[in-house]
Design a protein around this nucleic acid. Structure first.
Lengths: 235, 235
DNA sequence: CTAAAAACATGATTTAAATCATGTTTTTAA
DNA sequence: TTAAAAACATGATTTAAATCATGTTTTTAG
């Protein structure tokens, strides 16, 4: 299933966008020597809920969703990630099993640093553990913000906020408006935390309200201010 | 407003339950010499959303709620803490403002370690930063679990889960059944993420279903198994 | 290239939970 | 101690959003 395509950490472009950007010399060489590098096709699972982590994943290229399975079988997307992001650190650092699964949204190239190597490096690199603490605490902030949203905001506002979040996370194409991410309506619903039909309806509404345009699966923001207003953000 | 009542870190009982339990010698002395110690009355604010953190709070005694204000003015309780817990680390480590406020649920004794001192210590104590990473990643796990709950579970299940969470977090009195925490109905609603009336109704229901007993504000779990079943937990 | 299966779309109906309304009990503070 | 204000409680009503139902379009696989 997995193909291998080794990339040298030293000259890895996505490393410069990652928490390993300041790493060099011996530690970087150690990681480079022990890491594995794999290709995952769209839809493939990188890791699954319930398993113990064996190492830290680094996304070299491609986009990945992190999703939790609810009882009813519906998935809740709790994070969306891209090149330069790391995967599986929550479980690795907490010493717990994965509480969510990671699935490739497109063809991906992802490295795996064995856990022993990873722990060895962070124990001797204070700056790296500071970076990780920053990452974790920002994730926590986002998650807690989402909790309040889910508990208090109507779906319409959450949908608007989700579109803004997608823009923030994945950026746009050259026009500065078309979101650089493709998700199915069901996946969008699973980000927002609503039924698929509701997500479809809301996107249609936003379209007829001239807030967005829909070309196939792509979302284009044509009235950013109105979108922000619809999201009802107040910080 | 605040009274002072200095407690020596070296012999601090709550330290042994905290992330500082393994700390000793020079670093501990540094913290002890620079920390401040204050008394907060029930209802007093320890820190407020929107401000930059000046240090790390350590709860010596008392219980504290961490809550976010939604637009409609309703608060969402995102964490509940007690003696031995630390406060304000999320904002401190992310370099951001507080995204929530901390309010004393009872009279508290809380110390404050200035941020410079705290950062100095974690930078030279690898084991401490590992502990903090574990704390943050477990918090993150709990928050993400809550996101899925809020998005997918009906209120009744969430209320049952909240009562189990309160037992888990604060334990019980000597009978092993009465929760060792007092919250108003409104506060319970703000933990669950529902309207106050709904929370009141659900508690009454649980009472007539012989799952809990209510003596004034105290909640007593009289049928634990049924409560677990009602929470519909499946991991 | 075509059949089957997903994914998308929209209307109709149901329902869970919020809101509104009103009364009682408990707590707080003058 | 006694008003006033919170907090608690319960019933009635409304409403946002889920579910159900059905049809169309797009994608996938043999």
């Amino acid at each position: 299933m997995k193909s291998t395509k080794h990339i040298d950490c030293e000259h890895c472009e996505s490393r410069n966008k990652s928490i390993f950007c300041d790493l060099h010399g011996e530690h970087l060489a150690t990681i480079n020597n022990h890491k594995g590098c794999n290709i995952y096709k769209k839809g493939q699972t990188i890791f699954s809920e319930g398993f113990f982590p064996q190492g830290l994943f680094c996304i070299n290229s491609g986009k990945v969703k992190i999703a939790q399975a609810g009882d009813n079988g519906r998935e809740q997307i709790i994070r969306l990630t891209k090149e330069g992001d790391i995967l599986g650190y929550r479980a690795l650092l907490s010493g717990e099993k994965y509480i969510a699964s990671a699935i490739a949204l497109e063809d991906c190239n992802i490295c795996l640093i064995p856990k022993e190597i990873f722990f060895k490096v962070i124990e001797s690199e204070t700056s790296l553990s500071m970076q990780i603490m920053k990452l974790l605490s920002r994730d926590l902030g986002k998650a807690e913000h989402k909790i309040t949203d889910l508990a208090q905001k109507p779906v319409r506002e959450r949908m608007a906020e989700a579109i803004l979040f997608l823009k923030e996370t994945f950026g746009t194409e050259n026009d500065g408006k078309t979101l650089n991410i493709v998700l199915s309506r069901e996946e969008i619903a699973n980000v927002v935390g609503t039924a698929t039909e509701t997500a479809i309806r809301l996107l249609s509404e936003f379209k007829s309200d001239a807030i967005i345009e829909l070309q196939a699966k792509k979302i284009k923001i044509i009235n950013y201010d109105k979108l922000v207003k619809t999201a009802n953000i107040h910080d």
